[in-house]
Design a binder for these strands. Sequence first.
DNA 1: TATTGTTATACTCTATAACTATA
DNA 2: TATAGTTATAGAGTATAACAATA
Lengths: 141, 141
Amino acid sequence: MISGNGLPDAVLALHRTTHHTLHALSVALTGLNLSAAEINALANLTEEGALSVGQLSAATGTKASTLTGVLDRLERRGYLTRELDAADRRSFRLHLTQEGAAAARQVHAAVSALEERALASLSPAQMAGYHAVITALQEAC
Amino acid sequence: MISGNGLPDAVLALHRTTHHTLHALSVALTGLNLSAAEINALANLTEEGALSVGQLSAATGTKASTLTGVLDRLERRGYLTRELDAADRRSFRLHLTQEGAAAARQVHAAVSALEERALASLSPAQMAGYHAVITALQEAC
DNA sequence: TATTGTTATACTCTATAACTATA
DNA sequence: TATAGTTATAGAGTATAACAATA
């Protein structure tokens, strides 16, 4: 109870839980040999999506300059391609390859499995409260 | 909406929000010139606390081997001391110095300010839902 | 034997600023 | 001029395994 509102601190709990879930996901996905940032990137990409680097940066909370290295590794592994956007040739569309899409599906499945295991017994109201807080924290930044 | 329960994905939102809040805190604390992990460590220490490395590791979600470097820097800066625990001489008690306690207070203040700014209009029920979800995610790992 | 914390290694993440190409 | 993304640099975070000291 740090914040004095009768509840444990929201932000510290957020950071702690992020560490724990990232670790659990990387254990669940040991076979894929992905780093936390790579998991986070793949989790935000889908076969249809084709985000730009900027959009993926916003979705993950990772800087574009950090994503460069992450995307380099995923590209080198054959998981995605960067294709020039014809509409704005400064930017790329990130396309998952078949292999990349398969890896992304495994990541999505691991995330879903973790959530189902953890959150099955929680009520819709609790989930809604969670998302309200998360959204408010994000928007205050 | 990734998880199919009508709500945006809980884990991805968690990671994204962590990135954003860490960045906002390091901006708010620019004068202290602290890294994210240093902020996270200081945020979990108080003048009375005197945690062991293992306890701080559990509180932050950071590995002990990572904390070694973080604590080295905080110690070099004169923010804390490691004192042998007489009761178990394998472990240390982490004591904040006066300077370290002052820095920790600034960190706590920045965290509280962010939370108040972000969460003022949310209901106790929403906050409780948030903590229920966070706790459940942590315990599932 | 098990545990606490550090060390060593090798890699990944991060911030920042400068840079290229395009708008 | 402004924006998208990369590059360069230097530092910080991470996992892992081996290690010392203590339990």
